[in-house]
Design a protein around this nucleic acid. Sequence first.
DNA 1: GTTAATTATCTGTATATGCAGATAATAGAC
DNA 2: GTCTATTATCTGCATATACAGATAATTAAC
Lengths: 144, 144
Amino acid sequence: MTTSFDPMSPVCCVSFRLRRAARVVAKTYDAGLKPVGLRNTQFTLLAALVMNGPQNIGQLSHALVTDGTTLTRNLEVLSKRGLIEDARYHEDERVRIVKTSPQGEAIYRQALPLWQTTQQEMLDVFGRERWADLADMLQLVETS
Amino acid sequence: MTTSFDPMSPVCCVSFRLRRAARVVAKTYDAGLKPVGLRNTQFTLLAALVMNGPQNIGQLSHALVTDGTTLTRNLEVLSKRGLIEDARYHEDERVRIVKTSPQGEAIYRQALPLWQTTQQEMLDVFGRERWADLADMLQLVETS
DNA sequence: GTTAATTATCTGTATATGCAGATAATAGAC
DNA sequence: GTCTATTATCTGCATATACAGATAATTAAC
């Protein structure tokens, strides 16, 4: 039996396939980050703050393409663990600026090589060339 | 400034990119399915039951590559809405078999054209050829 | 300068997701 | 036949996700 590719079958739903791949791959990264107790989502958020400096919710939301309300709660998780903190300033009282704490930066330094190992392995197996192609297509599909 | 593609930067985390794309695309499908009040995840689950018939959690888990505990709760949502029901049988008392209810099939029939419209549009914009390629790569990355 | 429109964030609510560990039922070892 | 190992599912817990609507602060309109 040859299972032909029928793009109009729900099995080929673009959303389903993307979510499924994301689920599977996320577990690999979560496993790699386990020693520092970070999930891939948390690592991403921390990395965004470390690499781009203190930011407000809107900037993070734009950078990570994540709903602001989601960020409020995801940041709360990191905040409770003391990895980030507020950096208030007094130009616009509505704006909340968050930044990594010293502990947050320390954890990030520990997490980075763990993440690198997983990313490296992933790219080695999957292929760097292919990843460049896949990344391009993911970018494209986001705008379709 | 040319932003060169650095695959070892956290911005290029395979997990992050997949989740981001999945988030964005999911919203498109959710919008398309809004008239019947189904989310893309729920549509996928319902479709799996309609197309493959009554199944137990383990079979669904394998087919959708989703943790069994996740399915228990996702099925609960559909069950509360009366779209699926249990189809107990008495060979192995541990096994729970679920199937679509008449209402579930009715909703599915209403949802299918809505999903098809979104899928069609997605493929038209993104390109059918490219989707075949992307689907292949997503499959591959799941096994990397 | 007060009122209205806009903007940034948060809260309430609901779903999606999976790990650890519990429970119950079946199969295997002897 | 009993005891043990395995298997299928569920519960407790925690996080990820976003829509609708609330709140508070700023800006625009007049």
